[in-house]
């Protein structure tokens, strides 16, 4: 039986989780989107309610599942289910949101147990649109000492940027990976 490998994408509503998964998935992304009915509708028309799903298919047909969590806090019961057995967390934060720092704190706290067992890479999106904070401001939020949490300014549409996040995640889990 093949092992189940999955990478988790999380972050607040509108951070670009679905876009990020689409940018690196080898299969068409499965989305569970519904019309937004709460405060989310101010941000976008539809939103993820259960999960987004994509996959990287390796040469030997092994699937690396890419799961995107719903962004709303009221769906947080889904987070634990989705993270179970995951390789690590890619956390996307909308940099144009005035609450970006608070969001970063909240998600780091919410996924604390998972992060402690695995690893996390933070991507700040939409910095070029309406940057609310500099990267240094986000870095101050992260804990001092080891491990130093990787944090990048990324474009969720860019395969290169999201691939860099995945590469970073894997190397922080095991720096001795050889290709």
């Amino acid at each position: 039986m093949k092992a189940n490998h999955k990478i988790i994408f999380s972050g607040p509503v509108g951070a670009g989780k679905t876009t990020a998964i689409t940018s690196i998935s080898d299969i068409p992304t499965v989305r569970t989107e519904e019309s937004a009915s709460d405060e989310t509708k101010d941000l976008k028309d539809s939103t993820t309610v259960a999960l987004d799903y994509g996959a990287i298919i390796l040469q030997d047909s092994t699937r690396i599942h890419l799961y995107g969590t719903p962004g709303q806090k009221r769906f947080d019961f889904m987070w634990e289910i989705l993270t179970n057995g995951g390789i690590g967390l890619l956390l996307l934060i909308d940099g144009s949101d005035v609450k970006a720092i608070d969001n970063l704190k909240f998600f780091l706290s919410s996924f604390k147990n998972f992060i402690n067992k695995t690893s996390v890479v933070v991507g700040i999106t939409k910095q070029e649109i309406n940057k609310q904070y500099n990267l240094e401001d986000y870095q101050k939020v992260l804990n001092e000492g080891l491990p130093v949490i990787p944090i990048y300014e990324v474009d969720a549409r860019s395969k290169k940027d999201i691939s860099l996040m995945v590469e970073t995640l894997l190397y922080t889990l095991d720096p001795k990976i050889s290709i």
Partner: peptide
């Protein structure tokens, strides 16, 4: 000490990405 857990699959993922 470096964990070797899942090293083989990580290596494959990286190869795939590159």
């Amino acid at each position: 000490s470096f964990t070797k857990k899942r090293r083989a699959v990580f290596s494959k993922i990286l190869s795939h990405i590159f």
